[in-house]
Amino acid sequence: MTSRSVAVIDYGMGNLHSAAKALQHVSPETKVIVSANKDEILECDHVIVPGVGAIRDCMGEIKRLGIDAVISQAIKTKPVMGICIGMQTMLNFSEENDGVHCMGIFEGEVRYFGTDLRDEQGEHLKVPHMGWNNVYQREDHPIWNNIADGERFYFVHSYYVELANQAQSIGSCTYGHPFDAVVARDNIVATQFHPEKSADAGLQLLKNFLDWDGGLS
């Protein structure tokens, strides 16, 4: 099954066009919309929660526009994917901006890498974590189809996800210490990296998402 339509939720936080263009590229026959409209979003059979920027602004806009209600509706009925800050909005809480309560779709918190992050050799690591890093597959999942274990994806973030339930962590990355790079439960999946900026591996992952029924059919 390939998606007939996918909504990229537009809550005013930056560049959503990359995600939309990448989705259209991997699936030319799929209708890709960028929208904040509840009905338009819920009419689609796949939903993407993207985002860049800071968490307080993101959560502020999500609440102001009623997007939280749209997302909680969507996760009952269709495959939903969070990307980067879109992933972080799905946790309980983020340390960013002096602490922000998020949607709590996954149990866990979002933490700061800190200013004294070091690798195994004791070398100082810069923050943000920016660039291509390896992602190791901890659990089988349809999102990993045709993607090599340890493949590199493009990250840009200063805060990372720490899940309470590690069984939901299906992909792990290490920057100073291991963190949860891909999380999944039921029909929901989320990535800390940007698949829409991760060349062939990222495009494959987006295609896998569009091909995924979320286990709902």
Partner: peptide
């Protein structure tokens, strides 16, 4: 394995 240096 770790974060890669980039060529631009």
């Amino acid at each position: 394995m770790a974060l890669a240096k980039r060529i631009i």
